[in-house]
Structure formats: C-alpha cells, structure tokens
Design a protein around this nucleic acid. Structure first.
Lengths: 335, 335
DNA sequence: TCATCAGAGTGGAACGTTCCAATTCGACCG
DNA sequence: CGGTCGAATTGGAACGTTCCACTCTGATGA
C-alpha cells in the first residue's frame, strides 16, 4: 500500500519523452527546447518528483557537499563564522556538513576520514590545537581540496584576519591616548594567530621606543580574570587583549579588584563578538567580521575545487578598530 | 598519470576473493570466517581503499546523514545545543548536515527541500519564528522522520526544556527572597517557549496571591536595555527575564539608569549561557543545559528513524536554578 | 550410501542518476 | 538532388555499492 518514489523514468513516461530527455529538462539544460523543458517540469510537478542527489553523486562523482571542521562552535566567534560559511556555501548550491572538533586533534582526524568517505567535494578546516604539521600534506595526498580558516598551515588556500594589523591598530590607538605602559594579555599557544597578534603589538611598541610586556594566560575568561585581578595601580595602564573573551575576563577581574575598565585601566579586545557592544562598559575592540571571513573561506575553497590547477588563494582580511568605552577614549575626549 | 580510486573490486582481486565477499568482509559481517575478514582488511589497507558512502547510500537508501535546522546559530544557546546534537549523532555513526535558517521561515523551507533531495535519513528542526503550522503535516506527508527541538509543534517527537518549571523556579526564588513586585521581562512572540515561560511565572505569582506584570519586549539585548533603563525606583524590585540575552540587556539598561543589578534590582535570566557566569555581576539564571537537550534531540530522532511505528518520544528536561549574584541572594544572606 | 544441513563464499541484478555517442529531422548549400 | 550541418532528442552503458538467491563443501545421521 505504500506509494513508491517517483523517478525520472516515471516523469519521462508521463511527459512522453525519453528518460535522458527528462533528465536534461529537469536540469534545465539549454540543449532542449523551452517547450520540452516546460512539459517535463509540469509532469514532474504533477507526479511530485523529488530529485535524488545520492544517485547523481555516485554517477557524477560530485556531491555538492562541503565538510566544515569547526574547532569550537560554542565560541561565539566561530559560531558567527560558521554562519557565514554556511550562508555562502548555500548560495553557491552546496550543503554544509558540520563537525565540531572541540579542539581535539584526534576527533578532527576521525571526522576528516568520515568526510573523505562521504564523500565531500572539499573541506574547510579550522585546525584544532595540536594539529600535526603533516596534516596538510596528507590532505594533499588524499586529493581532497581544502582550505584553512583563521588558523593557517604554512601554505595552501586560506582565509582569515590580518592579526598583525589588528593588534597594531589597537596598540597605536592606546599610544595615541597617551598610554606608555601597555601590556599584552593572553595568547600563550604557539600558532599562527597567537604569534601574529603578539607581533603586531610588539612591533608597534618597539616603533614607539617602548618595551613590550607579555602577561601570558590561556584563552579563557576565568584565567584572564585571575591575572587581571592581580594587577595593581603600579601595573600597566592599558591592556591589549588576545581576544574578546580574554578582555571580558580581564574586565571582570579588574572590577573585582575595584578598578573600572575605561576609567582606571584601558582595555582593548580582539574579534568584536556580538557581546562586545553589550558589555558594560561596551568593549573597544578589533573588528574582524567573522561572518565575512566565513564567506571568504567558502569562496577560497570553491575556487580551489573549480580550478585545482590554479594557485591557492589566500585572503587576509583587514581588521578595523571599533572604539567604544573600555579604552577610555570617550572620557578623555570629554575631559 | 593520475592514480585512480581503489574500489571493492580491486580489494577483492588483491585478496583473492569474490567482490561480494570482500564487501561483506569490509563490513565485518559475521557470516565470514575471521581469517577471511583479516585477509581482506589487510588487502584494503595495502591498497589504500576508501569506502564510498555515496554508492552505498544509493543502493541501500540510507545515508547515515541527519539534517539540522538551527534557527540562529550565532545565539550561544543554540550553538551549544548544536554541539550537543553533532556529538551525539557522530557517536551513533551519523553525519550532521547544517543549515542556519536565521529565523527565516522561507529559508527554512528551502533547506528542508534540499535535505529531502540529499537525501537525509531525518531532520532535527528548531522551527524559525513564523513557521506555518502546516509544516508538521507536510513533513509527515514527505515521510521524512523529524523531531523538533526547544520550540515544538503540537505533536510529534520533541526534545526541549520544561519552560514552565523554569520560570516557576525563578519566581519562587525571588518570592522567597522577599520580593513582591516581580515583573516578567520579554517574550512577546506567540510560541511554545514564550507561553510556557510566561505561564510558569504567572502561576507562581498567582499562587502567592500577587498579580503578574508583563514588560513585553523583543528578544534582543538592545530592546531589553531600553525597557530596563526606563524603570524607576517605583517600578518592580525584581525581574524574571525571558532569557539570558534579555537579562544582559536589562542589566545594562539598569546600570545606565544608575542602578546595580543584584543590589538595587534582582535579575534572573533563563538558559545559563556560558557568558552568564562571567557577566558582572554574575547572572542568576535557569540552567537548561543546551548540550544535554541537543543529545536528547538526537536520541529522540534516531528512535523515530529506527522504529517509525512507535509512538514519538517527547523529552522534556527539568531545569535547575543557578544562584549567582544578580538576584541579590548573596547580599541578603550576608546582611 | 544418500539425503539433509549449516557454514562459507559467490554471481549478478538492482539502485537512479549522468555521460557520451548515436540518431533523427529539417534546413541550407552547391 | 545528394551532402553537410546543427539542433533536438534518444539509447544505453557506466558509477560502486548492497542485497538476494544460489552454489559449493564437508559433516552428520539414518
């Protein structure tokens, strides 16, 4: 009694054309007369035909599916980025396969193997901390088109923010406000992001004839707040934070220590996550527009898939300084 | 010069068995002798065989793929939930196809059609605002196994928090602290979540012989802060907020108006997003463990797929009150 | 000695597309 | 009037699995 699925074959019979004609018509191929296409389309609608991608996938070898490996989707920055990727891929007619590696290199590896079997047309990867350097070559050996996002391999397609330029902007802003004792908070890991952000800060300090100062801590609100609470009036007057999470932690620590961000200590974040604007006091930060990075990443990967012989693209997106209240610029101007 | 893919056929030849034997061996089927399985496994490893799911999918009609429709992935609550779903599905051997509907019913519809074509074995859906009531029957007509998450249809498989119990907990806590003028902030939309949360609050108030008071506003930090800033000393002494976002907005508005949450006005949120603990002051809220809901949702859907004849499961998860500082309980205890 | 049986392995037809070569049919050209 | 051409359509072989029915082999029991 269960009604069976309608296939192209059935549509063809209903429309009175050959199977391959119907298939062509449903793909709206220009080789066919508009009239024929219409007739087939109508027959398909009448029967309630549903395209079966799994068969197409098998025959054509293309799945119109992209694997997305997110290092930590519960981090708002990466969530936003994921939304950008998904949106751009959808617009290009691709479906996103999601895997949250939760910063586990082992899980990342497992998911890559699954994606390879699936098979996906390509993968977008935000390498988990602890990713072996060999992964890049391995993917190449697999012939699996891929691009990195935010965190990068040495070579290959990539989309991410210009970290160096970001912390340079932040540091120069604080210098312009008259600060001299500016410390860099957070970013202990050895990866492309950490080194980039540190360098931008350190070079700006050096150019101003000042010595950079590193307050290391893990990228974690709790840890950052502990480090910040320990800071006294003798400490730095301004903090360039590794990212917004660290800045939030720092702000909380400072308040616990009885000092108000923006009044007693200047604070600049990095990322401009949605919460930054709604924090109290609103956080001055570096906007890198994760949504835009996500879209760029999708573009870069699709280029790689469409034109595998071409040089891999690297899109380094320029950041912008967003001045709010945590850096104290407002108060200074008012005074 | 390009090396071609290795198929089961090649593995079979290498192992000196028939194609179907090799296929059985690779699935580790107990019909085969352990010895045979080993030989085939080794041959596969030697050749670098990669399983091709797209062919399996087509022949068997099962894709081991689930479509996940998230209403707004940039919302940390849903991001966390997504992580839970993905983790549980992965453990069960399923891959997650992600679509962020961004609260657009039209986009949601389009993505459902894609998922149907893909084809996925089932969909997990957090209905976007404005989802027509007919969607539920339509999915049934499509014969597409589905379950709702957080927001629910009237019937069908579902996993989500017990909203009524949550706001009841919040309200009773505030009553116990001695508050009498307690208002409910936010939740203007007409959906299962809004009505549930309102009812839990309103009934608790009624039981205490008090009249409930609704301060409507959209679920948006900005709007909530405007409403809260307008509140004066003559207004309510405590706010039960629709969710943590609204509570954050309210906290910000209160501070702008010169009043400190937890000292001048008691504030309780709903959801316990990661930021709640790190807010200043830390937010008292209702924990619903989005990660757990996500896992439950995956379970409920897989049950539906495995056993379509059985009654759809509905998992309503009990919330917990998390007391931090924004409700003023600490101060009160200290005094 | 022969039927029966279970265990182990085999052969080949599906699954629903896409792809390519082939065919049909006028129109046009010399 | 035969030949060539392009546009429109067709036929049928792939694609790499799974699934089912079948064969083969040796052991068992009457």
């Amino acid at each position: 009694m269960k009604m069976q699925r309608i296939r192209i074959k059935d549509v063809a019979r209903e429309a009175g054309v050959a199977l391959s004609t119907a298939a062509l018509a449903l793909r709206d191929d220009s080789k066919l007369r508009e009239e024929t296409r219409r007739v087939v389309r109508e027959a398909a609608a009448r029967l309630g035909y549903v395209y079966d991608r799994s068969a197409a996938m098998m025959r054509s070898g293309r799945s119109h599916t992209i694997g997305l490996l997110v290092c930590e989707i519960t981090n708002p920055f990466y969530a936003e980025l994921t939304a950008g990727v998904e949106e751009a891929l959808d617009q290009a007619g691709y479906v996103t396969m999601l895997a949250n590696t939760a910063e586990s290199a082992e899980r990342q590896r497992r998911m890559l193997e699954r994606f390879r079997e699936q098979p996906v047309d390509g993968v977008l990867i935000m390498p988990a901390t602890g990713t072996p350097a060999s992964l890049s070559e391995e993917l190449r050996a697999w012939q699996l088109p891929h691009a990195t996002v935010v965190r990068s391999f040495r070579r290959g397609a990539h989309a991410g923010p210009d970290n160096r330029a970001g912390t340079r902007l932040a540091t120069e802003h604080l210098l312009a406000l008259g600060h001299r004792r500016i410390a860099f908070l957070g970013g202990a890991a050895k990866n492309s992001v950490s080194t980039g952000r540190w360098e931008g800060y350190a070079r700006a300090m050096a150019r101003a004839g000042l010595t950079p100062e590193h307050l290391p801590c893990r990228t974690d609100i709790g840890e950052a707040s502990v480090v910040a609470e320990a800071l006294t009036a003798k400490g730095p007057t301004a903090l360039v934070c590794f990212n917004d999470s660290v800045a939030f932690g720092a702000g909380m620590g400072l308040q616990r220590g009885g000092r108000m961000p923006g009044r007693d200590v200047a604070l600049v974040g990095f990322d401009d996550v949605r919460e930054a604007a709604h924090w109290y006091p609103p956080l001055t930060t570096i906007r890198v527009a994760p949504h835009v990075i996500g879209q760029a990443a999708a573009r870069v990967l699709l280029h790689r898939i469409t034109d595998p012989a071409a040089e891999p693209l690297r899109e380094i997106l320029p950041p912008a300084l967003v001045i709010r209240e945590s850096c104290g610029a407002q108060q200074r101007r008012a005074a």
